[in-house]
Amino acid sequence: MIKVDSLTKRYGAFTAVDDVSFTARPGRVTGFLGPNGAGKSTSMRVMVGLTPATSGYAEVSARRFADLPNPGLEVGVLLDASAQHAGRTGREILTIAQRTMGLPAGRVDEMLERVSLTPTESGRRVRNYSLGMRQRLGIATALLGDPEVLILDEPANGLDPAGIRWMRDLLRGYADQGGTVLLSSHLLHEIEVIADDLVVIGNGRIVAQGTKAELLASAGTLVRTRDVPTLSRALVDADVEFSPMTDALRVEADPDVVGQVALRAGVALTELRAADGAGLEEMFLELTADTQREGVAA
């Protein structure tokens, strides 16, 4: 369990994290989603005590991070896979973490196997690692102490498609066993396939949060017809809000409501479904439109 309450971090006049509150629950994968520079990494650094908060607080397993007696056994942290001593071997980096946590030496081999780093690879120095290999090593360090909570900042960066699939299965399995997983991403599709709960952040502020199912539901229905004008009139008459997409309508109502409206209007539909991915993507762009770089006039 991770609890973040009214967290604010200011750098002079700039507010990087602005009154952020959310809870990441056990047994669930919580996706921390936002464009670059939205404040995801800063929030995560505050959670693990690397950055002091201006106000508000973050708790992990009901304690401040600094109060955890041996944090590696309770919280697995991966903030930046590149933040490793380039001159150490992968195995040595894991060994240092294993010794710090006071774990048996065998854990290092178990973890290397779990993240599919071969003995040859783990014997190489990290400066020769690809970003994907560094991510695997970072995941191995995070999992080493078999913690109940995982805090991962952009863990899929640099992984190939098979690696992303592997990571997804691994985190799913972790949550299914009762673990709390918080992972950040600026890629919607990456997080959409794995997260149970979503926290969407833009310009330091939370712009939406809830379960993925609810956020998808609130994104409405996607409907297609050859007779758009008739359906549009019927929707206006039914007092249902909608917006035209490139070749369809996105309606702020459940599919069965839209179906009833179309039936009464006698309009033939070619497609009617919950506006799943498309809806969430639109929501993400919409919610972050006034906060993302592309939307800001130079």
């Binding site: 693990v48 005590g49 690397l50 944090p71 942290v77 490793q84 946590m101």
Partner: peptide, 9 residues
């Protein structure tokens, strides 16, 4: 330090 100071906070 990112790792050192999270393993020993």
């Amino acid at each position: 330090g990112l790792t050192s100071f999270t393993l020993v906070p």
